[in-house]
């Protein structure tokens, strides 16, 4: 059975592109448009990997990450953070909150795919 990936981003066009990429790799994909929706989907669908945007309405990526890591039930859930604010402090903050990886936008699709494979491999 294929691994499940949740894409949480409020930028419609980015979601479309990443969804296309993940599906092409054979993963099962679901989508959330804001932080709260993302949390709900994680609880409901228990994805193996979350591609989590930082700047989202209602609840930002950092908060989502923190809540997920606070729940032992999701200890196995991998989190790859994506952000357009590519500052070092943000990277450090994300990793400190328990993210498994970090990618700056814009990213190379190849790098993204490799990273996802590595995390799920």
């Amino acid at each position: 059975m294929s691994k499940k990936i949740l894409i949480a981003d409020d930028e419609q066009n980015i979601v479309i592109s990443v969804e296309f990429l993940m599906k092409r790799e054979g993963y099962t994909v679901s989508v959330a448009g804001d932080g709260e929706a993302a949390l709900a989907k994680i609880r409901e669908e228990k994805p193996d990997l979350v591609l989590l945007d930082v700047m989202m309405p209602k609840k930002n990526g950092f908060d989502v990450c923190q809540e997920v890591r606070a729940d032992p039930a999701f200890a196995g859930t991998r989190i790859l953070m994506l952000t357009a604010r590519g500052r070092d402090t943000e990277v450090a903050k994300g990793l400190a909150l328990g993210a498994d990886g970090y990618m700056s936008k814009p990213f190379s699709t190849k790098d993204l795919v490799d990273k996802v494979r590595e995390l799920l491999g």
Binding site: I14, S17, L21, M55, A84, R85, S104, P106, F107, T109
Partner: peptide, 18 residues
């Protein structure tokens, strides 16, 4: 500014590479 520029660039690059 960085965020606002990178966001459209992300889509553009992703689709171009696809």
């Amino acid at each position: 500014v960085s965020h606002e520029l990178r966001t459209p660039l992300t889509s553009i690059r992703a689709f171009s590479e696809i």
